[in-house]
Amino acid sequence: MPSETPQAEVGPTGCPHRSGPHSAKGSLEKGSPEDKEAKEPLWIRPDAPSRCTWQLGRPASESPHHHTAPAKSPKILPDILKKIGDTPMVRINKIGKKFGLKCELLAKCEFFNAGGSVKDRISLRMIEDAERDGTLKPGDTIIEPTSGNTGIGLALAAAVRGYRCIIVMPEKMSSEKVDVLRALGAEIVRTPTNARFDSPESHVGVAWRLKNEIPNSHILDQYRNASNPLAHYDTTADEILQQCDGKLDMLVASVGTGGTITGIARKLKEKCPGCRIIGVDPEGSILAEPEELNQTEQTTYEVEGIGYDFIPTVLDRTVVDKWFKSNDEEAFTFARMLIAQEGLLCGGSAGSTVAVAVKAAQELQEGQRCVVILPDSVRNYMTKFLSDRWMLQKGFLKEEDLTEKKPWWWHLRVQELGLSAPLTVLPTITCGHTIEILREKGFDQAPVVDEAGVILGMVTLGNMLSSLLAGKVQPSDQVGKVIYKQFKQIRLTDTLGRLSHILEMDHFALVV
């Protein structure tokens, strides 16, 4: 994948999101292997301009796509893939009243899908469409860049269908997702969380590099694949309309690839034109409109599966009536509230959605109805927002919020430890010299600072030695090549209790 991002070429006709291997024109390309080798690009942008032909009021008969309808489940399912879809609609009884809503608040519980998330729908649909058009064949390999849930859905379907599955996901995604993927037989590649989507090191860039190296491999490409919004247009939206008897006044959905909100909203605009569509985008993402909503100094966020630093091709923002931004604290607070007060075992993005819903639905009156999409299960986040310690460490809970008995030293300040200034190293000294210094002084790690004293990161003896043994660096290389740029900081005025929580999850903390 090139470091400079080429513009994806656009073909003359058809839909841009065809499933299957992508040609340089962004659509299915038939021909000899030699032709494909000559024409197939190194990668295709996940934010390529959409060429979708959908228009409100256009006859369904003019759609270029294969459409399906929700099917009634048999008493005995032939395999677990038949437990994807037909998820329950559940009334939220307490939270709406707590925040003064007059309307009825309903939750579409997508964590009841077989793999635990709304992404099971698009995973199965992308595979079925690729099999139907002859792209996927027995023994082929599926590769997908994902925040985890699409990966789980694909790995689940691949396990049943017999495909090899490789999932490329950023490091910030939970260990629970990784464990589930491994249990399903998927191979996992992790990428830096802070890598831009168009960087060769991003999950998108690495996935395309693997595709170019592995024979008979395919990126189904949830960011561009029409099967993504079509899955929701054909099934999720129809289920909502049936469950609500066609009567709903507002739908609120958090947005990642945009397939969920695009597919549902398009069908609702056709069948229930008075329904307002509300999009939820986390602070630090750029999906919301108008652009002024996205202006923030924050560039990272903890909530998973929603928000991006690019506009995915499948996201149709014209069908969203209003956007709201959400933050991590309210997302996790509301997710825990949904679990504790409503018994809905949902993930953090569901918290984002409901946090926005109780604001947006203030305009609705008694007798009206708001539906929220709860995308995934708490299963993926047992060591994250479900953990009091994690919430404390991230600053989303305060010590006084917890009532468990603490040891005698818990409320003492870090400054009472009488710490001395640490050994520091410059980023320009060599790895070999740094190892000598650390061994001589008896230290395992040291902060790396520039000549102005600005902290650049941390270097550890173990990481340097393993990097040297693996051949990633040489003793003569500058130590700046092996620094940890993500590390926890703590102030002298913070409590030892807070430091204790940090050290339970990290090997060190830097006192500043």
Rank of each mutant, 00 (worst) to 15 (best):
A253L: 12
T5P: 08
P64F: 15
P16H: 06
P70F: 05
S117C: 01
K211L: 09
G205I: 06
A48N: 10
D47Y: 06
E110P: 01
T236G: 06
D234R: 06
H67T: 08
Q222W: 00
P200N: 08
L56P: 11
D120G: 05
L156E: 00
W43D: 02
V178W: 05
L230K: 09
R45D: 10
A69K: 09
G26I: 04
V118F: 05
N149K: 02
A107S: 06
T135M: 13
T260I: 11
S174L: 01
E110I: 00
E4T: 05
P12H: 12
R18L: 09
P145Q: 04
M250E: 00
A159Q: 07
S123P: 07
S117G: 04
E187K: 10
K82E: 12
V189W: 08
L105G: 01
C165D: 01
L156K: 00
I261M: 15
V178S: 07
E239N: 07
T141C: 12
P145E: 04
R224I: 08
Q242P: 05
P21G: 06
A183P: 07
Q7N: 10
A114R: 06
P12M: 09
A24G: 12
S254N: 13
E104T: 03
P170R: 02
S23G: 07
P200Q: 07
R121W: 00
L181G: 03
I152D: 00
L81Q: 07
L184T: 06
E128A: 01
P16A: 07
R51D: 08
P49C: 12
K137R: 13
A8G: 10
K269C: 13
F112G: 09
G115L: 06
T236H: 06
Q7S: 05
P64D: 08
G153Q: 03
G246M: 05
V178L: 05
A24N: 10
A107I: 04
G274L: 08
T150C: 01
K75R: 06
L28T: 10
E187V: 06
K30H: 09
G185I: 01
K269G: 03
K108H: 01
K82Y: 10
S63R: 08
K247A: 12
A183H: 12
M126D: 06
E34W: 11
L230G: 02
K72D: 10
A38V: 14
T53D: 05
T53P: 02
V168K: 03
N216C: 14
V180M: 08
